[in-house]
Design a protein around this nucleic acid. Structure first.
Lengths: 189, 189
DNA sequence: GCCACCCTACCGACCGGTCGGTATGCTCAC
DNA sequence: GTGAGCATACCGACCGGTCGGTAGGGTGGC
């Protein structure tokens, strides 16, 4: 469990990285925004890169846990797809800054961490894929469009969400999640 | 029309920006990759930012021209949507690096250029939106999912394309374009 | 024919400033 | 007293951009 100071560093970093980008944000700006000093930051994080990676880790961990929980419910393919999308859209809408940083700065991951990340994403991807393929095999979904393309489309929208979603916009995360799920499921009939 | 040297600068910059990010790429790296010197680069571009903006400009100009051309064909809503997606997916697949830079470094645009860009994107967005709304009004498309959400989904996939599309992958840009168009149109029935 | 003049294209050493990171030491809870 | 939790001062590397200069080709006056 992170200390209060650690949490403030992460919060400040996420906000700044999201609005300016990782490289354009100096460590000094982060510590100023967090109301601490460099000494404190380097007490908790080994490097600026480590701080970025910690943001990734928190996001990925939460998403994977959500996915596993939903799969565990044992719903039908259609209901599972709806639940996954609803949960993903909602959690992404609530953490737009984290997601924006994540999507934009992914390429900064070093070789080793990139490998780890790809493995985790692949697992996530294939879990989702399996749900759709099962739905297709059972005749619940149409097989007109390959399952992997459907997954790409569905996850693509979510990753792009930070580009246009605004918390003060006309639609609540819940509404949006419903509309997106409706559309994806309509495409699978 | 850009000179050969200018073109080499742009090509090198696109490649480096795509693989490392804008800030992480130094001007020196660009000129080394292009086989020229800093003097030459600053002879053609006023700043590193200008170079980035030129990359955006080329991409946006081409996309808008494609869209206008397709609208001008006077096809049905369904055929228009298919044509727009096919052309967008294909051109994006052919210029993954440009698109990756574009999506990732958008936030670096200054105030004025950002305003210009938003106006152009809005125009693009609303042209696409109008096609879908017309299809819905004519009864060619279902109105179950709001047209703006459909547009968001469709354009979202395209922007995410650089994240996973590989030219040496199993699917050609044409196949992919077809599958994506199929799925979007299936969701609109 | 030729030379003075100029212009575009380009070179590369250099500068002011910024940045990530470190070294050192204080302080206070246990 | 001792280690976790910080603050402060500072370092060296690097970066975007500048600037004085050059190479070479075109052009017009004679």
């Amino acid at each position: 469990m992170p200390s209060a100071t650690e949490q403030r560093i992460i919060d400040a970093a996420v906000r700044l990285f999201a609005s300016q980008g990782y490289d354009a944000t100096s460590v000094q700006e982060i510590v100023n925004a967090a109301g601490i000093t460099k000494g404190a930051l380097y007490h908790y994080f080994r490097s600026k890169d480590d701080l970025l990676f910690e943001i990734y880790r928190l996001l990925i961990t939460a998403q994977s846990a959500d996915m596993d929980r939903i799969i565990g419910l044992g719903l039908s393919a259609g209901e599972t797809v709806r639940e996954i999308l609803a949960s993903l859209v909602s959690s992404t809408a609530e953490r737009v800054d984290e997601t924006a940083v994540f999507v934009r700065e992914l390429h900064r991951l070093g070789e080793e961490r990139m490998t780890d990340f790809r493995a985790e994403r692949r697992r996530y991807h294939e879990t989702f894929l399996a749900v759709i393929e099962k739905g297709q095999a059972d005749g619940e979904f149409s097989s007109q469009v390959p399952a992997d393309t459907v997954v790409r489309i569905a996850l693509g929208v979510v990753n792009q969400l930070p580009m246009w979603f605004r918390p003060d916009g006309p639609k609540t995360p819940g509404q949006l999640a419903g509309e997106i799920a409706d559309f994806v499921l309509a495409g699978l009939r």
